[in-house]
């Protein structure tokens, strides 16, 4: 078992009313799964992903990640946990504009205190695996959207996380680029056993996953 959500609630108070963002979510994710989260806008997909990624908090319920109970952990512990095990992929890539492809890839390693020679090797390996060696000295603005997202995925993977959280990873891409990214996810999942949770609007992309979770108004349906 990689992670387990039990009766998760999240709400905001607005004008005396309690608006639920997540309502009684129960979810178990085993290692090696590829899950697609679907639902209309505002149904709580991204919120759920952020809660899983420990970037956001919840108000009620239990969350166990690798046998650690996240809801009881202090902020610092929690961030250590996600830094160690989780990689993020964003819809709008979120690469640092001022760094080259190579430097963007290197950044997570810097924070994890890898030695210079190790970093070089790992970056080189990633560039190789994603077939972007030729682009390593370019800045994000010089790449197409698909290529940027490729770098984004590579960056998420570089520190060997157990779980990849992808928030509409193909939302800004055209169909061909989308397909490439989804194929990549599938390959990572099947060949390397990386657990993936993706949020998506598209049935076609969702079909790449092994399981689909549908949300509506913060509730699992």
């Amino acid at each position: 078992m990689l992670l387990q959500l039990k009766n998760i609630f999240k709400w905001v108070n607005s004008g005396g009313q309690r608006i639920f963002l997540l309502k009684d979510i129960n979810l178990e994710v085993a290692e090696g799964e590829f899950i697609s989260v679907m639902g209309p806008s505002g149904s709580g997909k991204s919120t759920l992903l952020n809660v899983i990624g420990m970037l956001d908090t919840f108000d009620e319920g239990e969350y166990n990640f690798l046998d650690e109970s996240v809801h009881t952990l202090k902020e610092k512990h929690r961030s250590n946990l996600y830094k160690e095990y989780i990689g993020f992929v964003f819809q709008s890539y979120h690469l640092l504009d001022d760094l080259t492809v190579q430097e963007n890839l290197e950044m997570p390693l810097l924070y994890k205190k890898f030695k210079g020679s190790e970093r070089k090797a790992m970056v080189a390996d990633m560039l190789d695996r994603f077939n972007i060696v030729g682009k390593k000295d370019l800045f994000p603005a010089q790449l197409s959207g698909g290529q940027q997202q490729l770098v984004g995925v590579a960056r998420a993977l570089i520190a060997n996380p157990k779980l990849i959280l992808a928030d509409e990873p193909t939302g800004n891409l055209n169909s061909q680029q989308s397909e490439e990214i989804m194929e990549l996810f599938k390959k990572l999942n099947q060949e390397e056993g990386v657990t993936i949770i993706q949020v998506t609007h598209s049935e076609k992309n969702a079909a790449y996953g092994s399981r689909i979770i549908n949300l509506l108004d913060g509730r699992k349906v």
Binding site: S79, F88, L96, Y111
Partner: peptide, 16 residues
């Protein structure tokens, strides 16, 4: 801000 966000998600601590 965006840079801060990205750095934090890829593992930067606040004091870093």
């Amino acid at each position: 801000a965006k840079e801060v966000g990205i750095r934090k998600t890829v593992g930067s601590r606040r004091n870093q």
